[in-house]
């Protein structure tokens, strides 16, 4: 009898382990739509020196696409599910569709006017609550940083709020075994290999892997994926369409991009958006150049010769 129970327990644990292996590893990937700060033209700058965000082209933050790729590689190898999430304005659904084109299974848009003006602390609060609601994850992935702020703070701050460890600046996933993952990461002047228990938050650098191109079949399928806000737009001025029916229809077709607001997540408003952000922009100045103080040198042989003489005389050269 005793032995029977033990064998039963053993079988149970083996079954659980096999089941876990068969289920693979679930990843939630935090992605961000960013203004293309590398290509700012004159039109984008307002007269007062601030930036007109609306005029900037919006792109998929590159390191976040690398994060999606890493999550997809884990899925390819071990099975599991990849869920892309973004906090942003309604138009950020563009990058969620791109995640679906690459191979993500599901996507979530976390959007609310009350999230506007969030710094990294308020952003990580919202994202961590969304991740808790989605749940069932082994990995949370993100790019190391987004090109609009270059802060690299949201990843670690989200990990802290989820009470899970973090590995930042990751270059390569070396292996996953017995609930632990080995990761090679960049450090100042070299690299190190860390082994972490799961769940874990991982931020990745751009050299880690190349994101895969979109699959044509998936583009055809998911170009019609819609957020709740986009479906609501469809029903506007069309009395024959009911939003609940339309949503159910899209859910059934697998074309629904989950949409979560502050209320859906039952968030504390004082921790969201501008209210939840300890850092404030006190002053913004357009960059003023001293200008005019330099000496113009003719681009000719003679001009350059005189310049070099001057530098030699001043003991700057030689």
């Amino acid at each position: 009898m005793q032995r029977c129970v033990q064998t039963g327990a053993l079988n149970q644990s083996i079954i659980l382990r096999i089941k876990k292996a068969a289920m693979g590893f679930n990843s939630i990937v935090m992605v961000k739509q960013v203004p293309d700060t590398a290509n700012i033209s004159g039109q984008v700058m307002k007269e007062d020196g601030t930036v007109n965000r609306a005029k900037l082209p919006a792109i998929f933050n590159h390191e976040d696409r690398v994060a999606i790729e890493l999550a997809l590689q884990i899925k390819d190898k071990f099975g599991g599910k990849v869920t892309a999430i973004t906090m942003g304005p309604p138009r950020a659904s563009d990058i969620l569709r791109e995640c679906l084109y690459m191979g993500a299974d599901e996507a979530y848009l976390i959007s609310d006017r009350k999230f506007a003006g969030a710094d990294t602390l308020a952003t990580s609060y919202v994202l961590s609550e969304a991740i808790k609601k989605i749940g069932g994850y082994d990995f949370v992935f993100a790019g190391r940083q987004a090109i609009d702020g270059d802060t690299a703070q949201v990843g670690p701050q989200t990990a802290e709020k989820l009470h899970i460890p973090q590995i930042t600046y990751s270059e390569e996933i070396l292996g996953i075994k017995d609930g632990s993952v080995q990761i090679k990461r960049k450090i100042d002047g070299g690299f190190e290999v860390l082994e972490s228990k799961l769940p874990l938050l991982v931020t990745v650098i751009k050299d880690a892997v190349s994101p895969r191109p979109f699959k044509a079949r998936r583009v055809m399928a998911y170009k019609n994926a819609r957020t709740l806000l986009e479906l609501e737009k469809l029903t506007e001025g069309n009395s024959l369409l009911y939003i609940d029916q339309l949503k159910d229809d899209y859910v059934n077709k697998g074309l629904y991009i989950h949409t979560l607001t502050m209320d859906d997540l039952k968030l504390d408003e004082s921790r969201c958006g501008v209210h939840g952000s300890p850092t404030k922009v006190h002053k913004v100045e357009s960059v003023v150049l001293a200008g005019g103080s330099h000496e113009m040198i003719e681009p000719t042989k003679e001009g350059i010769s005189r310049l070099i003489d001057q530098l030699l005389e001043d003991h700057i050269l030689g």
Binding site: T37, M45, V51, T279, K280, E285
Partner: peptide, 15 residues
């Protein structure tokens, strides 16, 4: 510097 270096921002954490 912020926003691709087009502006210089002064950030404070008042509270």
């Amino acid at each position: 510097p912020a926003f691709g270096g087009n502006i210089i921002a002064t950030i404070i954490s008042p509270d």
